[in-house]
Write a protein that binds this DNA or RNA. Structure first.
Length: 597
RNA sequence: GGGGGCGUAGUUCAGUUGGUUAGAACGCUGGCCUGUCACGCCAGAGGUCGAGGGUUCGAGCCCCUUCGUCCCCGCCA
């Protein structure tokens, strides 16, 4: 039944033929998407990468071809020769670009058969993700993943072309590199020729790209895989792709300007969307105050507000304690929620914030005839009225409150804000809201380790006017750092780097690194800084996250050809796997866990 | 490390208070069908109810343990 390809070659793809091609003799190849057998005439939707074309096999035209076509099943690979014909009146298919025509098959080759696929490869069937992941090569045949990966390709193609045109040079950096135990956990690779030693896979090429600036490349980029051994999320994979960029002789504004141009170009070329020049900026402090998060979703206007002053000394113990213990009370006016939300909605929202660490969810519902709330009797009428006024709440609104330590309040109130935005229909899925977040603190206090930690990374430069604070008040220092946020997702971040070795030494000293640690981890880098390092800075974008947003996907896995599960396994290849003793022995390795079952 | 959802036919799901032989749709197989396009009609096959243990006269359903997957917290310089 199966034939060789022989000298047959395609003349067209399956998305090429139009009414203007009627009468042409063509050769098409592809997969059987679906067979419709009418006893007499048989229709097959032939699929290749580009699209679908209906081919027709009828006993009148060629009896042998028709008989062979009765054997066709889903996902058989076939080649046909035939003539392009107009479809009979009334049988045009407006859903297909090729829907005006069909191909009357004169010769049919079955190039390969297929066993029955475990799920239907159409756009209609919902299939659970674990099944899709096990048969990823089949899932990739379906329209959704196929178009996602094609769009991802268009994104990286545009990135490359734009950066080439701006004089950026594509340089590769090592995957087998040195472990730097700061930051995320490293993936380690044991070295056979250096017993007992390991390489680490890079969490990012941070030091290498700075070394390329020291080396004088001036403008560097790389679309590069990075590895972090941390727990996964819907937007996090253990290996992910960055667009990594570094430039010399520039300051923040120069770099941000070029990156805006890059995204304007991507949106134009990939989506056909024209973006305005001059992305808005916001300070870290403003983002935390109004959105409770350093990656604000600016597509909709619901804002958090700290109301410590208004509720200070009120009769509600939860609020009072938050204020007194240097925490905060934050309010959020859900405009119009009064009508939209049932009691159960509010209960569900309460469960939601409690699961994120809240003690409960206080609220005041503003009705025409007064305030409805379990907490007004504690707050007091005056304070309640003041809060309503401060939040500019009108009848039909509900004010929600969070109280406690700042970190927890921001965590759940920011998530509540997003949930309310969705429930109230405030989020326009077609909107693309960029914002630069600036003026990050340089350092944050690590309460466990009782030391300062770099918020971004230890090579980030402080603002020029803040450098003196290293000796007096490190917590007050602001960084020359910038994050680019799109629709509430941090798609990239970077900074102007420290290019003077004396400042870098100060940074390491503030982070509490001993001389030995410094020399062991960063010695080569500190040396390099002494050889005429130009002022430089850079940024890295999460290519997977950008692709997730542009394809309107809900998970990063939907824009990665072969992703890992939440436990960092591959359901298709079954990686990671046990290693046999011989291989381990060569690496001088022994595991202290149960061996192969 | 912690919290939550899900797990029943190839797939997506239903399965009442614990009670006879576990159902539906799609897919699959066979038959019929000459203008369909998620074709239609008829018939049929298809089950380790994730796994293990327990309670019970009796478990898909209750209890315990465990595995897988998804979402979240911690973690992610």
């Amino acid at each position: 039944m199966v034939s060789n390809l022989g000298d047959w070659r395609r003349t067209h793809d399956c998305n090429a033929l139009r009414a203007s091609d009627i009468g042409k003799k063509v050769t098409l190849m592809g997969w059987v998407q679906r067979r419709r057998d009418h006893g007499g005439v048989i229709f097959v939707d032939l699929r290749d990468r580009e699209g679908l074309t209906q081919i027709v096999m009828s006993p009148e035209l060629n009896k042998a071809v028709h008989e062979k076509a009765e054997n066709l099943r889903s996902e058989f690979v076939i080649a046909i020769k035939g003539e392009v014909a107009a479809r009979p009146e009334g049988s045009l298919n407006e859903k297909l670009p090729t829907g005006e025509v069909e191909v009357n098959v004169e010769e049919l080759k079955i190039l390969n058969t297929s066993i029955v696929p475990p799920f239907m490869l159409d756009e209609y069937s919902n299939v659970s993700e674990d099944v899709r992941l096990k048969y990823r090569y089949l899932d990739l045949r379906r329209p959704e993943l196929k178009s996602n990966l094609i769009m991802r390709h268009q994104i990286t193609k545009t990135m490359r072309e734009f950066l080439y045109s701006k004089g950026f040079i594509d340089v590769e950096t090592p995957f087998l590199t040195k472990s730097t135990p700061e930051g995320a956990r490293d993936y380690l690779v044991p070295s056979r020729v250096n017993p007992g030693k390991c390489y680490a896979l890079p969490q990012s090429p941070q030091m290498f790209k700075q070394l390329l600036m020291i080396a004088g490349f001036e403008r560097y980029f790389q679309i590069v895989r990075c590895f972090r051994d941390e727990d996964l999320r819907a937007d996090r994979q253990p290996e992910f792709t960055q667009l990594d960029i570094e430039m010399s002789f520039i300051d923040s504004k120069d770099l941000m300007g070029i990156m805006e141009e890059l995204f304007i170009t991507i949106f134009d070329q990939v989506l056909g969307v024209k973006l305005e020049k001059g992305f808005p900026t916001m300070s870290y402090d403003e983002a935390m105050e109004k959105y409770g998060h350093d990656a604000p979703d600016t597509r909709f206007e619901l804002y958090l507000k700290t109301i410590n002053e208004t509720v200070k000394g009120c009769g509600f113990k939860v609020f009072n304690e938050a204020v007194e213990k240097n925490g905060c009370v934050k309010a959020l006016n859900a405009i119009g929620a009064g009508k939209a939300f049932s009691r159960k909605d509010i209960d569900d929202l309460t469960d939601f914030v409690v699961s994120l660490g809240a003690g409960g969810l206080a609220y005041i519902k503003v009705n025409e005839d007064g305030l409805q709330s379990p907490i007004v009797k504690f707050l007091g009428e005056d304070v309640a009225a003041a809060v309503v006024k401060e939040m500019d709440a009108k009848p039909g609104d509900i004010i929600f409150f969070g109280a406690g330590d700042k970190y927890t309040v921001n965590l759940y109130m920011s998530k509540l804000r997003l949930k309310l935005g969705a429930m109230l229909g405030l989020i326009d899925r077609d909107k693309h809201s960029f914002v630069w977040v600036l003026d990050f603190p340089l350092l944050e206090w690590d309460a466990d380790g009782k030391r300062w930690a770099a918020m971004h990374h230890p090579f980030t430069s402080p603002l020029d006017e803040d450098v003196a604070l290293f000796d007096t008040d490190p917590g007050k220092m602001r960084a020359k750092a910038y994050d680019l946020v799109l629709n509430g997702s941090e798609i990239g971040g970077g900074s102007i780097r420290i290019h003077r070795s004396d400042v870098q030494e100060k940074m390491f000293a503030t982070l509490g690194l001993t001389e030995e640690e410094k020399a062991y981890k960063f010695g080569f880098f500190i040396d390099a800084l002494k050889y005429g390092t130009p002022p430089h800075g850079g940024i890295a974008f999460g290519v997977d996250r950008v692709a997730t947003i542009l394809t309107k996907s809900t998970s990063i896995r939907d824009v990665i050809a072969f992703p890992k599960t939440q436990k960092a396994t591959c359901l298709m290849s079954d990686a990671p796997s046990f290693i046999d003793d011989k291989q381990l022995k060569e690496l001088y390795m022994k595991f202290e866990v149960a061996e192969n079952k």
